[in-house]
Design a protein around this nucleic acid. Structure first.
Length: 153
DNA sequence: GCCAACGTTGGC
DNA sequence: GCCAACGTTGGC
């Protein structure tokens, strides 16, 4: 029963980062391969971090604003939403962070071009025109499709 | 570097 | 509360 409940409440996410600032290789070098996912300064993204992210949720690590934008690996949420330590301290503290741990680096980048070519991913949030969120949900089927693209399950 | 798309700000 | 101006994101 416990495992069934866990399965039902499991959420998948996509976290965007510029590799020049913080890429998956930087995460791999961290102690225990854990890093604070901080610096999110968008209210919609903040609300997801604060209200919806749960410990043990899984997320794709996405590289943006670089030569090969795309999904580069998987991380696990090891600490759910808490006040972002990088924000300026005042009485409000509106921003939130989570801690992520590297689960795996994919053997290659699953590029944006490749993702766009999949009919089964046509509703994926990251592919929507004008999307600028750095935190966004991924459905279970989208999660599976992406893994199939690299021959993993 | 360009530009579309979106979020935020601030005058009214 | 409207909306123009501005700033930022991010693919190309």
């Amino acid at each position: 029963m416990a495992s069934l409940r866990k399965h039902i409440t499991m959420q998948y996410w996509l976290l965007k980062s510029e590799p020049d600032v913080f890429g998956i290789h930087d995460l791999a070098k961290k102690p225990k391969q854990v890093a604070v996912w901080d610096g999110v300064r968008n209210y919609q993204a903040r609300n997801m971090l604060r209200d919806l992210f749960k410990k043990n949720d899984l997320a794709f690590f996405y590289h943006s604003s670089c030569e090969q934008p795309g999904i580069v690996g998987v991380v696990k949420i090891v600490k759910a939403g808490y006040p972002d330590p990088t924000q300026i301290k005042n009485d409000k503290l509106p921003w939130y962070a989570v801690d992520v741990k590297l689960v795996k680096k994919f053997p290659r980048v699953i590029t944006l071009i490749e993702l766009r070519a999949q009919r089964s991913l046509e509703n994926m949030v990251v592919l929507r025109k004008g999307n600028r969120l750095s935190v966004m949900p991924v459905t279970a089927s989208e999660w599976q499709v992406v893994h199939h693209l690299i021959g993993e399950n």
